[in-house]
Simulated assay, not measured.
Amino acid sequence: MKDAILYIKEQIKYFRVAVNLSQYSTKSTSMQNKFGRLWEILDPLVQLAINYLIFGVLMHRTAPDGLPPLAWMFIGMGVYTFMQHVITVGSKSVTRQFKLTAKMKFPVSIMPTSSMVGFLTEFSIMVGGGLVIAMFYGYYPSIYWLQIFFYFPLLIIFSLSMSLLCSSIEVVFPDFKFFLNYIFRFLMYGSGVIFDLGHFSVIPNLFIQAQLINPFYYLIEGFRDIAFGREWFWDKGMFNLGFVLITLFLLIIAANTHMKIRDRISDYL
């Protein structure tokens, strides 16, 4: 627990540094492109357009409870893509940026946080696009939108905990990045991002009901609850406690693992 507290203190103390590193990295990458930082907006918009053509025009996707399918799907994709990018890119950030941190006076633990900051624009556009589409179907801003102050911090904490843990594993076992990509390919279809698993009769009801134990599904559905005003977070009962305990466990394990190998990262690399 002590290591987890130390990790949190480092993120708070050096958050401004993490933001500056993210801005520098984004600017450096953008200078290599003709459209520069415009791609931060164009890329998520193009992704939404492609999925609109595939699932909205060609496949005529449906969503549970008669919800607008494209808004339902775009919100799910925005939350899932954010977690995927934060975890996969953050897991590589320590190994890729270790030489930089060794020369500067800030802890290497802020590198996953720096990576996370860079994906907030994409997250805002994709989830925001889903909210706008939902409004066209009559789901206007409501008091349920206040739940953003509950789910967004949980999204950040969970994503960073996973990112820190995966970054430590990748330092010791570089091949882990391949397994991580396979895991996220499965989660794309196993976490209710694009398809409502309840529509598949082959899947047992017990498994479907137990989905809320899956942190990815929990967060995705939480943001959908914000948009469509389906229920409050306290209506999920013990699933809230389950998510918090899982996230706290991941944070403690990730922080402990990171602190143990921090002084030996150069040896592994």
Rank of each mutant, 00 (worst) to 15 (best):
131 L>P: 11
141 P>L: 05
110 I>K: 05
175 D>E: 06
135 M>Y: 12
143 I>H: 12
109 S>R: 06
88 T>G: 13
85 H>E: 13
162 M>D: 10
124 S>D: 09
118 G>P: 01
172 V>M: 15
134 A>R: 02
160 L>V: 06
148 I>L: 12
132 V>E: 15
97 Q>I: 02
86 V>L: 04
133 I>F: 00
171 V>R: 07
83 M>Y: 04
135 M>A: 12
159 S>I: 00
80 Y>I: 02
135 M>K: 12
128 G>C: 02
121 T>A: 09
142 S>D: 13
148 I>S: 07
137 Y>S: 08
136 F>N: 14
145 W>Q: 10
133 I>M: 03
74 F>C: 07
171 V>L: 03
126 M>A: 13
81 T>V: 14
118 G>N: 08
140 Y>V: 15
92 K>W: 13
132 V>S: 15
103 K>A: 09
102 A>I: 05
115 S>F: 01
122 E>H: 14
128 G>A: 09
89 V>Y: 15
151 Y>R: 00
102 A>W: 06
171 V>D: 12
132 V>I: 12
104 M>R: 11
123 F>N: 00
169 I>H: 12
90 G>S: 06
83 M>A: 08
166 C>K: 08
120 L>Q: 01
84 Q>L: 07
98 F>W: 10
142 S>H: 13
101 T>I: 08
170 E>Y: 12
138 G>Y: 07
164 L>E: 14
102 A>F: 03
131 L>D: 13
173 F>Q: 11
147 Q>L: 04
76 G>P: 00
85 H>K: 10
153 P>W: 07
72 W>N: 01
137 Y>V: 03
166 C>F: 13
106 F>S: 11
118 G>H: 03
94 V>T: 10
128 G>K: 02
94 V>E: 08
111 M>H: 07
72 W>M: 06
137 Y>P: 03
119 F>H: 07
114 S>K: 02
141 P>S: 15
151 Y>D: 06
154 L>H: 06
78 G>I: 01
157 I>A: 09
86 V>T: 07
147 Q>F: 03
127 V>H: 08
94 V>M: 04
156 I>S: 03
141 P>I: 13
123 F>M: 02
173 F>A: 05
153 P>D: 08
164 L>Y: 08
135 M>S: 09
146 L>D: 15
150 F>V: 08
114 S>G: 07
84 Q>K: 14
102 A>S: 09
104 M>P: 04
